[in-house]
Write a protein that binds this DNA or RNA. Structure first.
Length: 150
DNA sequence: AGCAGGTTTAGCG
DNA sequence: CGCTAAACCTGCT
């Protein structure tokens, strides 16, 4: 069962990224390990991600597997994928897009997002400040910097 | 049912 | 201006 994961090193983040696949890309995790890990590239999305980190790619063509999540969460993540490279939106703004005022629930939905980056949850910021991030706020800041946002 | 969360906004010192 | 406190909505126990 270990043949469905890839690992690459993300220069901009200074940490490894592990991708898990089922029928589709199903999860991405940040690994802040001191030890060097063995990198592995077997899926298309992995290459896309690598190109994204090097600044060559700005959007992902791969599909993601979010079928296990609640309807509301899927709605949030789905809408979020429409946010373009280099753009940001606030929690409340994103809530409005899906016809709701549940900005707090949006934060909760994003927190349970299994696939950061491809589903650009780092582009969602708080109204005053950067907001939070599952993988760590430092990672979020670096991702925003990579996209040219300060 | 109750609680907590990647917020927000208002109100007070 | 910086901080505390209450309110909005959803998902989990």
């Amino acid at each position: 069962m270990t043949g469905n994961t890839d690992i690459i090193f993300a220069q901009p983040l200074d940490c490894y990224v592990k991708l898990t696949y089922k029928t589709r890309l199903s999860s991405i995790r940040f690994i802040k390990s001191k030890n060097s890990l063995k990198e592995k590239r077997t899926f298309d999305a992995t290459f896309e991600l690598e190109q994204y980190f090097s600044g060559e790619k700005k959007e992902f063509s791969c599909d993601v597997d979010i079928s296990g999540l609640s309807l509301f969460t899927q709605k949030v993540l789905d809408e979020l994928r429409r946010i373009k490279y280099g753009e940001t939106i606030t929690y409340s703004g994103l809530a409005e897009r899906i016809g709701s005022k549940a900005y707090r629930a949006v934060g909760r939905a994003l927190a349970s997002n299994p696939i950061p980056i491809v589903v650009p949850c780092h582009r969602v910021v708080a109204k005053n400040g950067v907001g939070g991030y599952s993988g760590g706020v430092d990672v979020k800041k670096r991702l925003l910097e990579l996209e040219g946002i300060h």
